[in-house]
Design a protein around this nucleic acid. Structure first.
Lengths: 231, 231
DNA sequence: TTACAGTATTTGGTAGGCCATAATACGATT
DNA sequence: AATCGTATTATGGCCTACCAAATACTGTAA
């Protein structure tokens, strides 16, 4: 009896992170925050040395990142950090628009006040981060805004897809949020999403969400087009 | 001169598929067509023997399938073939609806007659496969119908996402198309998509595409709910 | 200066081994 | 008989070392 009773409650949490997962996170981090620039070669043995792990682990990590779209594999030449071309970025924004729009509509149609509360919390966190000039915080809190949007209606698969795609445009995101326009427009558009959800206006919530990513995409394009010639 | 002249033209087409990719395809195939049932353990060393490759390759393949969602990894127990629960299937259908609806709308808005022609070709191929009772053909041609939908408007990223999700519900798909209802309804709904595209009716095309996957989802749920008790 | 041969680099792939953990079986003890 | 502890086995995680083939580099000879 003593063993069977609510043992789930006292279950010991153990880290259980394998070396592989740790290495995966490290390398993914290194790519998304620009430590490894796009196009750079990822030489297996160099990574082994830098990460302090064996080739086995490195290879599995590279395969994983490959299927995430963060690294590309040139045949007989090896893996490089994937280049992001503007068309692909546009497509990713478009997909995010479709899925986030869907999630927003579902939130509105559910009409539960907890959703509004949770989203408002995220939004104030974003505003605070903007106020503190904490750009990493803006990024993280924006993610969590959308995560609640999906989680509140139990759409974890869609959230997974969005998340997967988002890492590929991460450096674009970090550039768009730095724009002055974005720091005002962004939170405003997000509050419009919340308003529509509060009213139970599914159509409006969807449109507002799509507008929001469309605006992000437009800024990203502008930033990208001014940068390309310089490179 | 003899070596440099138009060597591109006579370039020997070599398979270039790495062993890893071959193994990946084999195992994925084995999972989607049910040779490895859901929940079954995938013991690395056994797979090595069955595939005739080394553990390195097998492990990389397993990682890849894991990130595709076809394999789940129980901590301290190893990989198993992922179980598909009904809620997840529903979510996948929903996402397909959103993305295929988007693609259909874009096709309609582009208004080029080649799209209509290509889609009609796919549709007649589907009808023929149904007529011949060739279910594998139905599946393949249905895929290619949607592939053209995405390709015609250059949305290869979205197509990749749909494709990725679709393998996870593949056995559901093969069950839904066997339904009598589906063999009539399916092509009919697809022709509605084409009609809307021909009219340039984006809204209608989107709705028709979403209806189509919604119907597929409904049948899948029906099939799944009659099966679960038996298991 | 060019062509070519040799060399280094690097991936793809293999073989085998070590260790930790989980489950199972088995034996001993109360 | 029930329980407890211990060996055994199966397996994943991880490592080292090795080889073959393709590519990139480099120095030398014509």
């Amino acid at each position: 009896m003593s063993g069977a009773l609510k043992d789930a409650a006292i279950r010991v949490e153990r880290p259980a992170k394998t070396l592989r997962e740790l290495a995966l996170d490290k390398v993914r981090e290194a790519i998304v925050n620009g430590y490894f620039r796009p196009g750079v070669r990822l030489v297996e043995r160099d990574l082994c040395a830098q990460l302090g792990v064996s080739r086995t682990v490195v290879r599995e990590v590279l395969r994983h990142l490959e299927s995430e779209g963060l690294v590309a594999n040139l045949p007989n030449k090896g893996p490089i950090v994937a280049q992001l071309d503007i068309d692909e970025a546009r497509q990713i924004y478009e997909i995010r628009g479709a899925l986030e729009g869907m999630a927003a509509r579902l939130c509105a149609e559910r009409g539960s006040p907890e959703i509004v509360t949770a989203l408002e919390e995220s939004l104030t966190a974003i505003r605070n981060s903007y106020h503190d000039n904490d750009m990493a915080g803006v990024l993280a809190n924006t993610s969590s805004f959308y995560q609640t949007l999906f989680n509140m209606v139990d759409r974890h698969v869609a959230w997974g897809v969005v998340n997967l795609l988002t890492v590929r445009i991460n450096h674009l995101r970090s550039m768009t949020i730095k724009t002055e326009r974005r720091s005002i427009e962004g939170p405003l558009q997000m509050s419009k999403i919340i308003d529509a959800i509060r009213r139970g206006d599914g159509e409006g919530a969807q449109r507002a969400a799509m507008d929001h990513v469309a605006a992000a995409c437009a800024i990203a394009e502008a930033v990208l087009s001014t940068q390309k010639p310089a490179e």
